[in-house]
Design a protein around this nucleic acid. Structure first.
Lengths: 336, 336
DNA sequence: CTGTTAGCGCCTTCAT
DNA sequence: ATGAAGGCGCTAACAG
């Protein structure tokens, strides 16, 4: 029989011949308290739940995403877990499967866990009811001492990592104009998603800067997914609207659209140009290379962790602005 | 002022004019115990940490992956979170960044959390030291009443979702042979990774079935990543070894290899064929379409949840075998 | 079906 | 620096 490791602090205290208090102290090991040899040996781990009960807080941070299988979110998750690891924090992952109403539900679960913080990634929908419920949940959460940060969209009074979608889309419009494009169709996400709206309006503004007007019938709405992009491209083709360049409001839509174009026998960029937004990781293996607006996705997650880990700063919610930069690539090289 | 919701059970009991025990009971709501109207109103949430302290167990399940940004793992994660949601469980995500030694560390964190179960996804490395430590951690974890399941690789005595890598690779070899290919180069992962080894040996067996021998110099080892695939393809080109078809031990390597081939000016499948393994989601947008061996990745995660959620079954570890099916696509159409 | 009591395992004042 | 004692919020075994 080997020396079995104690399961509780009390056991360990008995072994060490000291009180639980002392044992707790030099196990926790404050400043100037080298952990005694005795304890170093055995692989005792304090019960995190009990610690939480005692202390009143945990080292858990929650991450809520729309779809962990979407590279946009998995990159953000990578950023979050990276920082969490450095800070010895634990990440709890919740995947809403793009159902906004789940967000509030998960937030409640995380509140129940007494998470130190929650990060909400992904565009908010403009649905009144679920937004109201979400805001109530956030209020309850912060009332309980938890921190909340949003990624991408902004909610009044909440710390935010704000992606400059509008500016990025505007810059993209300028670049595409400079390449010679004059007629565009936008494959937009759901009209209710802020992110999509900001990108469309930024793009519209960019065109306006060059004296071009984006007609309403040149904006097609669909899901913010590959399937949405596919459907929107098909819809465009059937609509008979003319364009030399399609702008998809995100990369997964752009990729879906390209699949549709290929199926329709339209070659990119010879017959039609296409651009996306996000610069998701798998984009680098799509050919032809897709013009997009780069967002440092992992950084988004890291910055969000920075916000929720930083000490409170009173009542002014902090906003970290993240620049987006246009990446011109092959998919928009020619003007047909 | 609104009626503020109570933060503790005791507060709520006082409001309800009942004892904490009763309040706890009809809040928890056993069978035949409709939650009283009184409680339904306020948005009280029991403190999960305290519940865990009281009950001695949590409803948290840990998921350890190599790289959440890799579509192989993000699909598994999607499967896990999907089931967790149905079962009202919480998922804690740990990302080792492909450093095997982190696995044991995270397992310790999760043990400290007193997770009900842990799922280890991804191939085990054959490194003696870290494997030993991992097995000790697993032993401690199960000794504490926790369940453990592995995905993909097998560890003696641990429940496993076993991917039939060897059989899949063998079938692939047969299919490629039937297409007319006679000379192959395998872009393998690290020699230490079981998954890669199984796929290579299965492929070798498949060729042997047809009377072909896979020479050692036709097997090139590299990282199990896109960069690894890229490097291996470059290495192959420089080696001067002849082949009509490359078999990459997983899809991300295949995709990296395709990038290398493109850079080298070799067209697929006209000049060289290529096949991968996994059928990761983004593969559908790679062109030419990549021949691969399909694994139901989300199912892997769901099955793993099934194993750890199912009641114990004594000492025999369960093994769920997952079939792989060959998907012939454009990238292997021609024999150059 | 209630309420009382005793834990769960840890942390943290408070004296010593 | 150490030990004793109280508390964290909840659950569960025990009586009534």
């Amino acid at each position: 029989m080997e020396l079995v490791s104690p399961a509780t602090l009390a056991e360990m205290a008995r072994m060490a011949g000291a009180s639980v208090a002392t044992t707790s102290r030099d196990f926790t090991g404050g400043p100037g308290r080298p952990a005694p040899e005795l304890l170093r040996g055995l692989s005792y781990l304090p019960n995190a739940a009990a610690q939480a009960a005692g202390r009143g807080h945990t080292n858990v941070v929650g991450l809520i995403v729309h779809d962990i299988n979407d590279p946009y979110f998995s990159s953000i998750a990578a950023g979050v877990t990276g920082v969490a690891d450095e800070q010895d924090m634990i990440v709890t992952l919740a995947d809403t499967r793009r159902r906004p109403e789940r967000e509030a539900k998960y937030l409640a679960s995380l509140r129940q866990l007494r998470c130190r913080a929650v990060i909400l990634a992904g565009s908010r929908s403009a649905d009144q009811a679920s937004e109201a419920r979400l805001r109530r949940e956030i209020a309850s959460f912060t009332a309980g001492g938890g921190r909340v940060a949003m990624i991408s969209q902004q909610l009044p009074g909440v710390d935010t990592v704000l992606v400059e979608n509008s500016t990025g889309a505007r810059d993209l419009a300028h670049s595409l104009f400079d390449l010679g494009h004059r007629s565009f169709v936008v494959l937009a996400g759901p009209a209710s998603l802020r992110t999509s709206r900001d990108r469309v309006s930024g793009f519209r503004q960019g065109l306006a800067d060059r004296g071009l007007r984006l007609e309403p019938r040149h904006v097609l709405h669909a899901d913010f997914t590959r399937e949405g992009g596919f459907a929107a491209a098909m819809h465009w083709r059937n609509s008979g609207v003319k364009a030399t360049c399609l702008f998809a409001a995100n990369d997964v839509m752009a990729v879906g659209a390209m699949a549709a174009l290929r199926q329709l026998g339209l070659s990119v960029p010879e017959e039609i140009s296409i651009a996306g937004f996000d610069d998701i990781l798998p984009l680098r293996d799509i050919s032809p290379a897709v013009t997009t607006v780069h967002i440092p996705l992992e950084t988004l997650g890291m910055e969000a962790m920075g916000l929720v880990l930083a000490p409170e700063c009173g009542l002014t919610p902090r906003v970290r602005r993240i620049r987006c930069t246009v990446r011109l690539r092959e998919s928009t090289r020619h003007v047909p």
